[in-house]
Nucleic acid binder design. Structure first.
Length: 332
DNA sequence: AAGTCGTGGGA
DNA sequence: TTCCCAAGACT
């Protein structure tokens, strides 16, 4: 059972939903001084309001369609780790068409996964997804497991991804705490502009407390809160005028106070090993035959850093060294 | 538990 | 141009 953008599976709509005639989703239809998006029933549970919003605002993403299946959901979750939807879309389609089942991916060498990963970034994810496919084939007869613990045991699957697959692919009830949900909760409930840098026990507790009791409603709530964070309650420039819970948002009610404390994080990139690794791997991805050391030497001027980056790639299993100083993507 | 690990697009 | 950040996992 897949969570689709179809009308909410929430139980009785009758008592909870006051007849709502306010269509406030079109920005152009808003008068210049329009108030915040009207909420049909301010006393309804948060999940009722957010899930209702999701009914009409969910994007039609391929991994939300029934034909995606659990494997499609898992592929999408790996690719979406730290990577925007727009860049995942084309690669996702290629992957699912080429490897429609976990066993199909497992049957190909890991280097093919790395190559097909293209420029999505963090190519270790490709390696881990390949390893996860092998584990699924071996341990679970080729089917993506349903149990959270079994999902969590797969390579590259952490707390978030395990909960996401269990929820989105199998309709289960799990707190799904990704960066979007954490931001929505930080604002709507905690009154902060941003969540803490690392997920805290308090956040998990909060997520657990907000989780609807009903399984199907909980699964939809997970997708709905993520979507709200991705489309409306964004990190920069949240569009509170379009938010279904703006009238109840603690951050908003507090006057939208700016983030306190040190800057959130600095993710420098230029000149780092990561950049060099990226350049080295790009050469190997585009090569049909093994690449000589001398060709790799062209991508970076500084020999010590260059060697360190290449060693790192080999250590990670992303590059396979062959005799004679030539390299290729891993065949095994 | 703070660092590491890619890439590209929007503000 | 520079900076920020986008459905995290792993060590």
């Amino acid at each position: 059972m897949t969570v689709t953008p179809a009308p909410s599976v929430e139980a009785p709509k009758s008592a909870e939903h006051a007849p709502s005639t306010s269509e406030s989703t079109e920005p152009a239809a808003q008068p210049p001084h329009a108030p915040e998006a009207a909420e049909s029933n301010p006393t309804a549970a948060l999940h009722t309001t957010v899930n209702a919003w999701f009914d009409t605002h969910a994007r039609d993403l391929p991994w939300r369609r029934p034909e995606a299946g659990p494997w499609g959901v898992m592929i999408s979750e790996f690719m979406l780790q730290q990577t925007p939807v727009s860049r995942v879309l084309p690669v996702y389609e290629q992957w699912l068409a080429r490897w429609p089942r976990p066993a199909d991916l497992a049957a190909d060498p890991p280097g093919e996964a790395v190559r097909a990963w293209g420029r999505l970034g963090y190519p270790r994810r490709a390696l881990r997804l390949h390893a996860a496919a092998s584990a699924i084939k071996e341990r679970h007869c080729g089917d993506v497991p349903r149990e959270h613990a079994q999902l969590l045991a797969l390579p590259g699957v952490g707390e978030y991804t395990a909960a996401a697959v269990a929820s989105f692919a199998y309709g289960q009830r799990h707190p799904v705490l990704d960066t979007n949900v954490r931001r929505v909760f930080a604002r709507a409930v905690s009154g902060k502009q941003y969540p803490p840098n690392a997920t805290t026990a308090a956040e998990r507790k909060l997520a657990r407390s907000l989780l609807p009791d009903d399984e199907a409603t909980a699964a939809r709530w997970a997708a709905a809160t993520m979507e709200l964070g991705a489309l409306v309650c964004t990190a920069r420039g949240p569009e509170c005028g379009r938010c279904p819970i703006a009238t109840r948002c603690a951050w908003r009610l507090a006057g939208s106070p700016a983030h306190e404390g040190p800057p959130r994080r600095g993710q420098t990139y230029a000149g780092t090993d990561r950049q060099v690794r990226g350049k080295l791997l790009a050469v190997l991805r585009d090569a049909v035959t093994p690449v000589p050391q001398t060709a790799l030497d062209q991508v970076w001027h500084e020999p010590v850093q260059r060697a360190r980056a290449l060693d790192g790639l080999v250590a990670d299993g992303l590059v396979e060294p062959l005799a004679g100083g030539v390299y290729r993507l891993p065949q095994s």
